[in-house]
């Protein structure tokens, strides 16, 4: 007891620091809890079965076409971005020589890309894919825009995964007579899969939540288009449009809940993958 008193007297500074640091952490976590709880509380009462009817009408403001479009958007974007991202990472991690000028430029460009706001991507997509390439408002134009947007994420996470693989793997493979290509595809990539997956999941989260880059590229038609050259709104765009029209606010609230739940699932997945990664590294 005596000791504690002395501690407090001489360490007011320490106590104060502990206090403000803890307050900051509580505020951060509190902000998250507030966001999640309020959205669920305001949104869940507004979810009704009519929202899940197959076709969108202005009465039911169904989310089903938007959900399907979101799924298509995720798949198409990943089909474009994942191979390019992984191949770039392979070049950077396995092929490029140290101190290569080109590598520096590529890194700088990837960094620049990851800093560009989504609305600038959206305008670029509009000017380039929609107008210059004549794709019109279409899922394809949206997916291409998003592919550029998530490319740096996939690239950097894959590169990190590749460089964290011990050189003994490569040496072992070379020692067994495998060429560079075989080493990369049969030995290095398989061991890097959890890391790559983490990057891909992160990208899925960004694609699902993206609005600004899609409004002027994929458009906002509330139906599933017949092919990739048709316009369609994803879930986030759907929510924005509902808010903007102001006619079906209840459905907009409900859509927020669906979006949030999707993001929760995606985060859960990425945590699972991360846990696999840690386990693997510990082995």
């Amino acid at each position: 007891m005596e000791k504690l008193k002395i501690d407090l007297k001489y360490h007011k500074f320490s106590l104060l620091i502990r206090l403000i640091v803890c307050i900051a952490a509580v505020l951060t976590v509190g902000a998250l809890i507030a966001v999640v709880v309020y959205i669920l509380a305001k949104g869940i009462p507004n979810i009704n079965p009519a929202m899940f009817e197959w076709k969108y009408t202005s009465e039911n403001a169904s989310v089903v076409p938007a959900l399907i479009n979101t799924l298509i958007m995720v798949v198409v974007t990943l089909i474009i971005a994942v191979p390019i991202g992984i191949f770039s990472a392979i070049y950077l991690a396995e092929y490029a020589k140290r101190g290569n000028k080109l590598v520096k430029v590529i890194r700088l460009m990837a960094e620049t890309l990851s800093g560009i706001p989504s609305i600038v991507f959206g305008l670029f997509g509009y000017l380039f894919f929609v107008i210059a390439c004549k794709f019109d408002y279409s899922l394809l134009a949206g997916a291409l825009t998003l592919a550029i947007m998530v490319l740096p994420t996939i690239m950097t996470t894959t590169e990190e995964a590749l460089t964290s693989i011990p050189d003994s793997y490569r040496e072992g493979s070379f020692g067994l007579g495998a060429g560079k290509l075989r080493t990369v595809f049969k030995v290095i990539l398989p061991s890097a899969i959890p890391g790559i997956l983490a990057g891909v999941i992160l990208s899925v989260g960004r694609i699902v939540g993206e609005t600004a880059a899609l409004i002027f590229t994929a458009g906002s038609v509330a139906a599933v288009p017949e092919n990739l050259l048709g316009s369609g709104r994803t879930l986030a765009v759907h929510m924005y449009v509902l808010f903007n029209e102001g006619l079906s606010m209840e459905q907009a609230y409900g859509t927020a809940v669906i979006l949030l739940i999707l993001v929760l699932i995606i985060n859960l997945l990425s945590n699972l993958v991360a846990r696999c990664l840690v386990k693997k590294n510990n082995q």
Binding site: A25, T28, V29, A31, L32, A34, V35, V36, Y38, I39, K42, G205, V208, G209, E210, T211, A212, A236, M239, Y240, F243, A252, Y253, A256, L259, L260, V263, L264, I266, N267, S270, N271
Partner: peptide
């Protein structure tokens, strides 16, 4: 518990944040 909370904070779409701002 805190680390995933911050990851989730990063993952919430901005339109959902906007909704939170508007109603809260």
């Amino acid at each position: 518990f805190v680390k995933p909370a911050i990851e989730l904070l990063a993952g919430i779409p901005s339109i959902v944040y906007g909704f939170f701002g508007l109603v809260v």
